[in-house]
Amino acid sequence: MSGSAITRGTEWLSKGGLRPTRQRLALAGLLVGDGQNRHVTAESLHAASTRSGEGVSLATVYNTLRAFCEAGLMQEVVVDGSKSYFDTRMDDHPHFYWEDSAELTDAPADQLEISRLPELPQGTELARVDVVIRLRRTV
């Protein structure tokens, strides 16, 4: 891993108040080391970790992604009950889910307009609104 990836990863972990363990630094470097936002699954991050020679277990990847989310560094995007993606971009924005390739990408936020939400149940407050637009390529 390059020195700039390690530096970015270390700074990113620091923003979340997380201690930079070897595993966290390795995964942070893969997630934000090039300065780009990305969407990953635990499995895709584990595969990237293995390819990079870091050897982080899948269980550690899952636990680390949860810690990153709890620290406010990432957000989890649930596509269906069994598939979660983790997004390093933290502003509110919609997503495209490509059903044929199981890929999650950002959708243009400036083209989305939500004019009204249902009345919230008493004793609750809005935490966030997730918008996932499912797509299928046409032939």
Rank of each mutant, 00 (worst) to 15 (best):
R137E: 03
A28H: 14
S82M: 03
P118L: 09
V61H: 04
I114Q: 12
L45M: 02
G17C: 05
A127H: 11
V78K: 12
E99S: 13
S57I: 06
S14T: 12
T7K: 12
R8D: 01
A102P: 02
R24K: 14
E70Y: 09
L31C: 07
S44V: 00
D87Q: 02
V79R: 14
G17N: 15
S4M: 07
T7V: 05
K15T: 11
F96M: 04
R128I: 00
S57R: 03
G53E: 01
L27P: 11
D106W: 07
R66Q: 12
Q111P: 00
E119N: 06
T64Y: 02
R128Y: 10
T60C: 09
G16L: 08
L65A: 06
D80N: 05
I6T: 15
H46S: 07
S101Q: 05
S52H: 15
A59S: 11
H95I: 06
L30S: 15
D87G: 01
T105Y: 06
E113F: 08
Q23H: 05
S49P: 09
T21E: 13
A5V: 05
R116E: 14
A26I: 01
V139D: 03
H39P: 00
E99C: 06
V79Y: 13
S84D: 09
L30P: 12
R8Y: 06
E99V: 13
S4E: 07
R137L: 04
R128W: 03
A48C: 03
P20I: 10
Y62W: 13
L13R: 15
